[in-house]
């Protein structure tokens, strides 16, 4: 757990910081913008697929989201969604140290949910690579897919990962009283006292 006891740490000069310290410090805001763009691109795939199924009435095998329409192999190979799941998991882990207090707790909730989501995608990906589907199914199957259809299951996964993530970002931008904003990054909107007052 991160320390937010109120003792301000003076950030080291950027030239002396490691790559991890930079993306969780002076580059945290930019890193989060890039990360959120990836998350929203992933959401676009799922929302487009849900619209194709629920609103347009397309058959489920033809409802391949956005990129899957032009590049069907991305869906059939499971590469697109496995890639998104992996990148999101890595991003959640790499950017965690920029968060403190409540925002850190919400961020790590998102991380652990995404960890399970990634396991499910890894199971799907491995079936494609091994040319052998579990449960003698005609298509790759994940574990929870035994009780919940895939479209709804992955809408659910993305919702319950996104919500703690976005709450974490909100509390990171607008820290709760008593939780100092991270000393090294410029994500927080509100005013903060410096360590030395004139």
């Amino acid at each position: 757990m991160q320390n937010f006891s109120g003792v301000c740490q003076i950030p080291r000069p950027i030239a002396e910081q490691s790559w991890m310290q930079r993306i969780n410090g002076p580059w945290h805001k930019q890193s989060l913008w890039i990360y959120m763009a990836i998350v929203l691109a992933h959401w676009a795939e799922h929302l487009a697929q849900a619209t194709q199924v629920y609103v347009l009435g397309w058959p489920i095998p033809d409802s391949r989201g956005v990129l899957g329409i032009w590049f069907p192999w991305m869906i059939k190979s499971e590469a697109l969604h496995y890639g998104y799941a992996l990148v999101m998991l890595i991003g959640l882990w790499l950017l965690r140290k920029g968060f403190v207090g409540q925002s850190y707790r919400w961020w790590m909730i998102a991380f652990w949910i995404q960890f399970w989501h990634h396991i499910e995608h890894a199971i799907l990906q491995s079936q494609v690579l091994l040319h052998h589907n579990l449960f003698r199914a005609p298509v790759p199957m994940s574990l929870i897919q035994l009780i919940v259809p895939r479209v709804e299951l992955h809408l659910f996964y993305n919702t319950i990962v996104f919500i703690p993530m976005v709450i974490a970002m909100f509390f990171h931008m607008f820290p709760l009283p008593g939780e100092e904003a991270h000393a090294g990054c410029s994500c927080a909107w509100q005013t903060r006292h410096a360590t030395v007052a004139s």
Partner: peptide, 21 residues
């Protein structure tokens, strides 16, 4: 559809989570 109950539970939980957020 197969597992229609599971689908409705998953969708409902999405809705509840969005409302909590």
């Amino acid at each position: 559809i197969p597992h229609a109950g599971g689908a409705r539970v998953a969708l409902s939980l999405c809705g509840v989570a969005a409302c909590i957020c």
